[in-house]
Computed example of a mutant assay.
Amino acid sequence: MPSDFFISDHHFGHKLIIDFESRPFADADEMTDVMIQKWNAAVGSEDKVFHLGDFSFLNQERTQEIVRKLNGYKFLVLGNHDRGRSRSWWLDAGFDEVSEYPVLYKDFFLLSHEPVYMNKHMPYVNVHGHIHGQKYEGKNYFNVCVEHWDYIPLTFEQIRDAVVVSEEQA
């Protein structure tokens, strides 16, 4: 049975992110190769991946090459570095679906690039990226930036189970 996966902030082609976020790569090419391998080791061809933004800094041809190599049905929620390009640009780059806005998943998980304000009375969990190695405190936030998860997309079950454990500890 296919699974749903979540990840954000690959920054393909962004060599400066290696230093900004202390990524363990010699250069952008090694970073691209390793991140594609880790994605494909977790994600099968029938799976769906929600990428929560800041996918690529490369031109459309190079971005298409990467998207083509990645397993699964790919849904992009645009990040701050993606929004300079149109929704159709990203569809032409190979994404199956693209949203300019946050998406509600399973009526409970708000998928966005940047963390969305959630007060303590809101029942939702915000699955987000954008803040890389940082973490928001509280049971309402779940950061899927690549730096937190060894560049491996997370399954819905991994997120759900982490949120349930967090709830039980609260």
Rank of each mutant, 00 (worst) to 15 (best):
M1P: 14
I7T: 10
I7P: 03
I7K: 08
H10P: 09
H10E: 11
H11I: 00
H11P: 07
F12Y: 11
G13P: 03
G13V: 03
K15A: 00
I17P: 01
I18S: 09
D19R: 15
D19Y: 12
D19A: 15
F20M: 08
S22M: 06
A26K: 13
D33N: 10
D33P: 02
V34P: 06
Q37V: 10
Q37K: 14
A41F: 08
A41K: 13
A42I: 07
E46L: 14
D47H: 08
K48D: 07
K48L: 10
V49K: 02
V49L: 04
H51A: 05
L52K: 04
G53D: 06
G53H: 02
D54Q: 01
F55C: 06
S56A: 08
L58S: 09
L58H: 05
N59C: 12
R62E: 15
R62V: 01
E65H: 11
I66E: 08
I66Y: 09
R68A: 13
N71Y: 08
Y73R: 15
K74C: 00
F75N: 08
V77F: 06
L78N: 07
L78G: 06
G79R: 06
N80A: 05
R83N: 10
R83I: 14
S88H: 13
W89Y: 15
D92G: 12
D92Q: 13
A93F: 05
G94I: 00
E97W: 05
E97K: 14
V98L: 05
V98Y: 03
S99R: 05
S99E: 08
S99G: 01
Y101K: 14
V103A: 07
V103H: 03
F109D: 02
L110N: 07
L111I: 04
S112W: 03
E114R: 11
Y117N: 11
M118I: 12
M122T: 00
M122G: 00
M122I: 00
P123Q: 09
P123I: 11
V125H: 03
N126R: 02
V127T: 05
V127G: 05
H128C: 06
H128R: 05
G129V: 01
I131D: 04
Q134A: 15
Q134L: 13
K135G: 10
K135W: 09
G138S: 07
G138P: 04
K139V: 12
N140Y: 10
Y141E: 09
F142M: 10
V144N: 04
V146K: 01
V146C: 01
V146M: 04
W149G: 08
D150S: 12
D150H: 09
I152R: 15
I152K: 13
I152Q: 13
L154E: 06
F156L: 09
E157L: 12
Q158S: 09
R160M: 11
E167P: 06
Q169A: 11
A170K: 14
